[in-house]
Amino acid sequence: MYSVLADDSRAVKLSSARIEEYRRLYGDQAAKRLDAWQRLIRESANLPEHEKLKRVNRFFNQVRFLDDIVHWKKKDYWATPVEFLISNGGDCEDFSIAKYYTLRALGVADEKMSLAYVKALELNQAHMVLTYYDTPQSMPLVLDNLIGDIRPANERPDLLHVYTFNGDSLWLSKRGRRAELVGTSDRLAPWVKLRDRIQQNDVNLSQSQEP
């Protein structure tokens, strides 16, 4: 079974030399965003867990929202956190993935988090958020790029939960909670492709908008 622990460091922790390489390739502004991200990780390492959630959610919600078809010239593309920040844009999956990997690197346990596919009822469209479970029985908190406040799932009636997954597992979800384990997250092809690119340190920005 795949474990997300294997690629936390590749997904998140960048050396100064690596950031300088990205500066040469993608410019000063891209490097500044990566530097700010690394500073967030260093400064948040010893904070209480709920403060980590707030800081990470606030940091990534500053990035531009851009549809995949506009940004990547593809119908559906799940960007790595590095791609998301270098290009300064992405859609709901990219926000959620970046928050997930950053919080994992900050020591938040994988079993406490899920990437949740929902329907945003007011927008009448599919959406993704990150959910956090203080305990297995807790009502999860929702980290969302649509709303800056972190709220419990039962205080988000605008979201209809469909399924949820993390590094290993895939569940159907009901009223914001994990309801039924239906397999491993390897069933989700975009997730598998994302992990493979992270493992290979692959940054593909040739089809995105200019940062």
Rank of each mutant, 00 (worst) to 15 (best):
T164F: 00
R151D: 06
Y101I: 05
M139L: 11
G89D: 02
N201I: 08
W191E: 10
Q29G: 01
R24I: 05
L172P: 00
H71R: 10
N57W: 00
A105R: 13
R18Q: 15
D202Y: 09
F84N: 04
E155L: 12
L160N: 10
P136W: 10
V82N: 01
D91I: 04
P211K: 14
V118C: 06
K193S: 14
L194G: 04
Y101F: 15
R64V: 11
E49G: 01
I97W: 03
A31L: 09
A153G: 05
K52P: 03
L25I: 07
R39P: 00
L40I: 12
Q62G: 14
A189T: 14
E51N: 02
G176W: 04
E210R: 14
E20H: 09
C92G: 01
P152M: 07
E20D: 13
A126H: 14
K193W: 00
A126S: 14
R42P: 00
G89W: 07
E51R: 10
E51C: 00
Q200K: 15
A105E: 13
R151N: 10
S208F: 15
A109Q: 15
R42E: 14
R187T: 09
V108D: 08
F59N: 03
V142I: 15
K193G: 07
N57V: 00
K74S: 11
N204C: 04
E122T: 14
R104K: 11
E93L: 04
A11V: 04
A31C: 08
D91A: 04
F60I: 09
P48W: 04
K193I: 08
F65C: 10
T135Y: 12
L5E: 15
I41Y: 08
L141N: 01
C92H: 05
S206R: 13
K54S: 13
L66E: 15
D76T: 02
L146W: 06
S87C: 09
S15N: 03
P48V: 04
E111R: 13
A45R: 15
K112L: 02
I198H: 03
I198T: 04
P190K: 07
D158Q: 12
R177K: 13
S44N: 05
C92Q: 05
E83L: 05
T184Q: 08
L121K: 13
V192S: 10
K99Q: 09
Y163S: 01
Y132I: 10
A179L: 09
Y117A: 03
T135C: 08
W72R: 05
Y26G: 00
W171F: 15
Q199W: 07
C92P: 03
N145Q: 09
F65N: 11
H127N: 04
P81Q: 08
L47A: 07
L143Q: 07
M139V: 15
R178S: 01
L159S: 07
D8Q: 14
R104I: 02
S16I: 09
L106S: 03
V118D: 02
R10S: 11
Q137F: 06
A98C: 06
E155S: 10
A36V: 03
G176V: 06
A179T: 00
M1E: 11
E20L: 11
I69Q: 12
A36C: 03
L130T: 07
P211E: 14
F65H: 13
N57I: 01
Q209T: 15
W78F: 05
P152G: 09
W72Q: 00
F59Y: 12
G90Q: 02
D67S: 14
D202K: 14
L205M: 06
P81F: 01
H71D: 07
A36Y: 06
A116R: 05
L40K: 06
I150K: 02
N166E: 08
